[in-house]
Amino acid sequence: MDLKELYQEIILDHGKNPRNLRKTENFNKDAKGHNPLCGDKVHVFLKIDEKKNISDISFEGSGCAISMASASIMTDLMKEKKEKEVKELIEDFLQMIKESPEMKTKIISENEKTKLMSLSGVKQYPMRVKCATLAWHTLTSAMKNSQEETNTEKFD
């Protein structure tokens, strides 16, 4: 157990001052996510242009430092990404949080990967994994423009 690893500076920074914590004007896709266990809530807004690029992404919500930092870092990274790339990134991130020691994707820089890896501290805290993944599952729903609320209890 290492709290310093869980609460790294970058997580505290994003947790206390989340980036993109607002509502995209003229968003064309969105979804809500909820973790019933701890009450964390996130609402992801997307503006996807004709070329299927994410021209803007933002979120509203409340929750612990881990879930806010995760949503903040995620939204920062997804800007200007293509829809296909978003899917690949989500999959790779979830894989990393669940089991693999690193991220495989080539879409983002090593620097950006390091940022995401800072969330891997939750691996030692099984009850907190859902905090780190809520925004990502919700983004998946938003891409599908799913009206059904994403519920982390449905995921393992």
């Binding site: 709290l3 609460y7 430092a65």
Partner: peptide
């Protein structure tokens, strides 16, 4: 102030 309950619980648990 400024610390979510879940973060408190994890830190206390240690």
């Amino acid at each position: 102030d400024g610390i979510h309950a879940h973060d408190i619980a994890t830190i206390l648990d240690e």
